[in-house]
Amino acid sequence: MKPGGFVHAMMLAGFLFLWLPILLLVGFAFSADRIPFQWGGFSLRWFGALATNERLLEAAWLSLRIAAASATLAVLMGGGIAFALARFGPFRGRALFGALAGAPLVLPEVVIGLSLLLLFVALEGLIGWPAGRGAFTILLAHAGFGAAYVAVVVQARLAEAERSLEEAAIDLGASPFVAFRTITLPLIAPALIAGWLLAFTLSLDDVVIASFVSGPAGTTLPIALFSMLRLGLTPEVNALGALVVLGVGSMLALALWLLGRRQA
């Protein structure tokens, strides 16, 4: 079916709605005016101001470290969960296992944040670990829900991947570990990478869960941005937005270009 002009116009309007605020954010980052979204001539002064904003830089560095560590932990646990669900057949408690693995996908953020905080407080009271709250509890919380997303992505890939290849390797005398390493792992590697990136982004973007489980020492970038945005938009935040959009956008454009070249 050929969609008509109306559908195309609506599609264009939809993309414009999605992109116009973002494009304006990028454009006005280069304005000299101290009021964001007002044009005061071309200037890079707010990028300079961002580069000397210790508080934001420290928060960004903390966020990047938490995101990388929690995504790695999420891939380990989420990958294991996906493998168990896709390859172990029936085992005792499988229904509960599956339900627990998927729960973080559908639980509201405020519920996850509050319940994890209560867990950390209870654990500290019972066994003294984790002592206090901060970067480590945020890391653990992010790995917890990141693993659920990784498990979905990897499970989909495992369901597609031919199981007969693994079975053939085992029949030919490979140990299950060798079969996993030489057959399964290469097959699911793209899903593991995609899952890592997804968990990384979710961690870098989360303000609600981090606010609940962080202590005074755990000011991540979203927590810092949130408290700044409560007072309105500042030109530094505008500049940060432009940097992120341009960075992510150029990485994606590069990926698409490489894909297109490989197909050609």
């Binding site: 303000v207 938009l233 940060l240 992510v248 956008g249 994606l252």
Partner: peptide, 11 residues
Amino acid sequence: FWTGFLLRLGA
């Protein structure tokens, strides 16, 4: 979705 939820709200 990849460009930061809070930054879009800032826009």
